[in-house]
Design a binder for these strands. Structure first.
Lengths: 337, 337
DNA sequence: GTGAAAGCGCTAACAG
DNA sequence: CTGTTAGCGCTTTCAC
């Protein structure tokens, strides 16, 4: 097969016997072209296999039509679905998703460099750890940012967030109601804002009920880490009545570790609550009591806010907090006294 | 805050007292510039907050540096990890991922239009349903494609694929070895190539052991659909000894449906095997007997092949088939006679 | 090693 | 409604 040169609007124009701008107009929505010209152009364009070059358009319009989505490699079980929803919502608004993952190798600074370079129209950051400095940089570069599941009341950025406070409160209330007395908090990693928020809220709520000095252990948001942390802790410490896990997957890790290596059943011997409402939490053999994040609303809100901000850069920053749904599973012992 | 015009290489050149091309050279790897010039340019560039504009570069180099990754919205539990791995591998090669999801709203034709428009350097297609025509179109547009988890021996495209044949054989062998006599195949959707392959291979292997006319039911690759299909089927049909599910999540669906609504335990009353080796399959309460896909190798192979093809468009198409790992869980009844 | 000049393929005024 | 004319910000010859 011969590598053919790509066909440009000039080629089409020449072939169709019109000017290059006529071709351009045909391929732009909402431009008036006579029916005759349009048909002629469309026909020859099709015949020649012409497609407008988005790169050239980006260059001149100063709009790439791309939105950077930054996710941490730290696998939050929600991300895949979040990503898919975001992509769907953005597609509907004619934006494309340019994907960036944050991991050990590529730090935030790297990613930010790339973002300037690629001239994205905006950024949606999934629970990555942004500080003031980063947000300022985005502001300086005139790149709108929406933080997903992270509060940033102090900063000049939009954010959308599940109501962790309310959710954790519901979980703690449930545990208190069912007469649990001793607790263990299994937090997510210390460099995760979401993890920190969930942990602190849990501590506060328990304190409100007169329960202080609740032990806290940490894990990396995943199943195996949760098991490991919990088993380490269980070696040297009395078992609590209930474990408040940072998310569903860690909750499942605790349940499995308790069952397999400590010979404890949930909820008979140990109550466990999670957070997120992922599929695994609803499996018949787990049925975690948890709070389900309103994914569709969250992602829709994120996209709406970002587009609003792109179109109107001077609109003032906004924070939207959406409530999750309390799901009563079978992982909390239902005693009432 | 004042909306400042973006700073270009000309601005930097003027400020630094050099030519615009000097600036350009400084920001391109492997170009010789005198130390003095380089430092001067770098310094003023930093001071002015200059970043090379990737869009302009793409336009002139005819290389976008972007790779389209197409995923079906049909949530294969593997995709998130696959996506993350692909992104990582591509990042290392300085390619960015432009994400496309295929769903009811956006058909393949739509996506292909966009792909031409965005001048991506290549495409990785995750288990989407491509036919000859589509592949030809990619070929005509000189866009290299790598199919992920789909054979395309007939077509002019590269592909990387888990060895379903071998994997399914191992699972069937296990079931036969343990004296299972009656079977039910729970296939994935009929428009999924992977699903079709796994189903047909299972049928063949069973036939090899003299077991014909194995009933087949269908589900949409997800938990709830699997439960629904299985419960519908169980209403009017005798229960099999074993269910061969198209993937782990569907296997879990069968196990849960059997347990919750039919009062059957796995593996005592019903054996179930899956495929993929996702986290959920390894949870203590399920421990599915399954075949784990070699994700890291698969994704690495996909990226390597794509880059090879981008750099050398005339290299002949290649198919790589990688074996998965048989995982013996607890979901198959271990009787030997 | 450096600078001048010519595009990449398109959009956006502006006349006609 | 149509064509002409400038660029968008960069890379790439090609002289010097």
């Amino acid at each position: 097969m011969v590598k053919q040169k790509r066909v440009t609007s000039y080629d089409v124009a020449r072939e169709a016997g019109v000017s290059q701008s006529a071709v351009s107009r045909v391929f732009r929505p909402g431009f008036s072209v006579s029916k005759k010209t349009r048909e002629k152009v469309l026909k020859t364009a099709n015949a020649m296999g012409y497609r407008p070059n988005a790169i050239a358009r980006m260059l001149i319009t100063q709009q790439s039509g791309m939105v950077a989505v930054i996710i941490s490699s730290r696998a939050n079980e929600n991300y895949p679905e979040v990503l898919s929803q975001l992509n769907k919502n953005l597609s509907e608004k004619n934006k494309k998703v340019l994907l960036f993952t944050l991991d050990d190798s590529a730090g935030l600074d790297d990613v930010m460099e790339q973002i300037w370079t690629f001239q994205v129209d905006g950024v949606i950051a999934l629970a990555a750890h942004f500080d003031h400095t980063n947000l300022e940089q985005f502001a300086n570069h005139n790149v709108p940012v929406v933080l997903y599941n992270r509060h940033a009341p102090e900063a000049n950025a939009n954010s959308v967030c599940c109501n962790h406070d309310k959710g954790i409160k519901q979980l703690v209330d449930k545990l208190i109601e069912t007469k649990h007395k001793s607790f263990l908090i299994l937090s997510g990693p210390e460099d995760s804002d979401v993890a920190n928020e969930r942990r602190e809220v849990a501590i506060d709520k328990l304190k409100y009920y007169g329960i202080a000095d609740v032990p806290v252990i940490y894990g990396d948001y995943n199943y195996h880490d949760a098991r490991h942390s919990f088993s380490q802790w269980a070696k040297d410490n009395p078992l609590p009545d209930a474990v408040i896990a940072a998310n569903d997957i860690m909750a499942i890790g605790v349940i499995d570790e308790a069952r397999e290596n400590l010979n404890l059943s949930t909820p008979e011997d140990l109550s466990v609550v999670g957070f997120d409402g992922v599929l695994a939490a609803s499996l018949f053999n787990y049925q975690i009591t948890t709070v389900k994040q309103p994914l569709e609303q969250l992602t829709k809100a994120a996209v709406d806010m970002l587009l609003e901000r792109i179109e109107n850069p001077d609109s003032s920053p906004e924070s939207r907090v959406l409530s999750g749904t309390f799901i009563e599973g079978q992982s909390v012992k239902p005693r009432t006294r």
